[in-house]
Design a binder for these strands. Structure first.
Length: 464
RNA sequence: UCCGGCGUAGCUCAAUGGUAGAGCGGAUGGCUGUUAACCAUUAGGUUGUAGGUUCGAGCCCUACCGCCGGAGCCA
């Protein structure tokens, strides 16, 4: 079928032209003047196209007068200037074809507002709503902007593996990947499950991060990034955690923590600007119905540099604030959510980059600073979203890395290939991971992360 | 996993331990170049599950399941 997208039709002004569009009915309003208004949406943009269907159409009485919300139709008609308010153009139908009807009694979607909780239960139909259509377009824009940003800066996109053999990367519990029969796995003489007989002849898992593999390509191609799914088998029940989420992980050779922070800042700024420039109608909708402060917040991000402070300075700031926290702040403790929120939402009211955390609370691969107490790590915190980026300069000195692994109880044997990067042509390098869904949350104002990914995977939920 | 809240019509929610209701949505009719239309009529219920207390439980008690919010884990 040759059809035109509504997003393009709406900007046309060559009235009198014949146009064919197709989509799903959002609403039908009848006029006893002998015609009906059909609000048609094809997903190409936020706005609907208003179709005027006259009762002289041959299938008017039988089909068109009974069209229900959700019905799939195509319309060929004449483009006209709309005499009504609310739209510039409309389509005067010459022919309306009903492709798939809807039983309104059975159709779960209503014309009026529905709760996000309810829509989560019908995740296969929710992209037909205003909100989830808009989320999908914003998410797409952020994905495109991600590739655009890194490609323009000569980063190479690397596809790191989803199935991994590293079982102790320290980023959380992992999902096991196996083809063994769970009811009757092969066992060794000691009675333990014999993974030598499994598909990969070893234990394997879904990746919790592409970082270690990313480092290998950064140690050859210089600047790389990964953009793929990530899996955490944590029993997390919050509005900002998923068991399956997408992460963007750049890695740069010949770079330190400061370069890393510069990159993070430029990247986030690019994403927000791209979103403001390409998703105007969708953002206007979110600003009106989801978060009244969204546009102001995104616009205010502007060009002002983000606040950067060390962990030590952050602790000082929190202590001096006189604020009472549920968890008191002391040097050496990890910052709690309430502390991060206070910094980014109350003190600075914009993104904050905290650097140089105590080495004791950070993983082995983060570079030990010269003070011997802190690691070259950074967190980027966003108002209302929290931690969106975690990154670090990596430990590039073999002897220091080995010592850190020993202290943290990581077996060097299983990381021999990772250690080779330090044995052969080791360079200072740094990178970070950005939680893509959290970025979508930030740009849409959506409160719950389960509503910014098409089919959320969370504890007890892998439907669809 | 811990703390708190919730679970009643298709949806959103009411209902002192005493006859289960409203709005929206649906159907039907009316009215109108309409914009989340409006007016009238009407259909629609195993109150999450299983026990318990009571003359009587949507309401009180216990357990379980699920959802939501906060915390932890993190992105």
């Amino acid at each position: 079928m040759k059809r035109e997208l509504i997003t393009h039709v709406l900007t046309r002004s060559d009235f009198g032209a014949t146009v064919t569009v197709a989509g799903w009915l959002r609403s039908r309003r009848d006029s006893k003047g002998g015609f009906s208004f059909l609000a048609l949406n094809d997903g190409s943009c936020f706005a609907n196209l208003q179709v005027v269907a006259d009762d002289t159409l041959p299938n008017y009485a039988d089909e068109l007068a009974h069209l229900a919300t959700g019905a799939a139709v195509s319309v060929t008609g004449t483009l006209v200037a709309s005499p009504g308010k609310g739209q510039q153009v409309e389509l005067k139908a010459d022919a309306v074809v009903l492709h798939g009807g809807v039983d309104p009694e059975a159709y779960p979607l209503q014309k009026k507002r529905m709760s996000f909780e309810r829509l989560r239960e019908i995740a296969h139909l929710r992209p037909r709503t205003n909100t989830f259509g808009a989320v999908a377009r914003v998410r797409n824009a952020l994905m495109a902007a991600t590739h655009q940003f890194f490609q323009e800066q000569d980063f190479i996109c690397v596809h790191t593996p989803i199935i991994t053999g590293s079982d102790c990367e320290g980023a959380g519990d992992m999902f096991a990947v196996t083809t063994l029969n769970p009811a009757d796995p092969p066992r060794s003489e000691s009675g333990a499950v014999d993974y030598a007989q499994d598909f990969f002849a070893r234990r394997t898992f879904l990746t919790v991060s592409g970082q270690l593999e990313g480092e290998t390509y950064a140690s050859a191609l210089g600047r790389i990034y990964t953009f793929g799914p990530t899996f955490r088998a944590e029993n997390s029940n919050t509005r900002r955690h998923l068991a399956e989420f997408w992460m963007v992980e750049p890695e740069m050779a010949f770079a330190d923590l400061s370069d890393d922070a510069d990159l993070a800042e430029a990247y986030i700024r690019h994403l927000v600007k791209h979103c403001l420039n390409h998703c105007e109608a969708d953002l206007a909708f979110f600003n009106q119905w989801v978060d009244k402060t969204l546009l102001a917040r995104l616009t205010a991000l502007g060009d002002a540099p983000y606040h950067r402070l060390s962990y030590t300075e952050a602790v000082d700031c929190l202590v001096r604030s006189g604020q009472t926290f549920e968890y008191p702040v002391t040097w050496g403790c990890d910052l709690q959510s309430e502390h991060e929120r206070y910094l980014t939402e109350t003190v600075f009211e914009q993104p904050v980059i905290v650097t140089d955390f105590p080495e004791a609370i950070k993983p082995f691969y983060m570079r030990l600073n010269d003070d011997g107490k802190t690691a070259a790590a950074m967190d980027v915190l966003l108002p209302h979203v929290g931690e969106i980026i975690g990154g670090s300069q990596r430990e590039d000195r073999l002897d220091v890395l080995l010592e850190r692994m020993r202290i943290k109880g990581v077996d060097p044997e299983t990381y021999s290939w990772y250690l080779d990067l330090r044995r052969f042509g080791s360079v200072p390098h740094a990178g970070f991971g950005l939680g893509f869904e959290r970025m979508v949350q930030f740009c849409t104002g959506m409160q719950n992360i389960r509503d910014v990914i098409p089919f959320p995977r969370t504890p007890r939920n892998a439907d669809f």
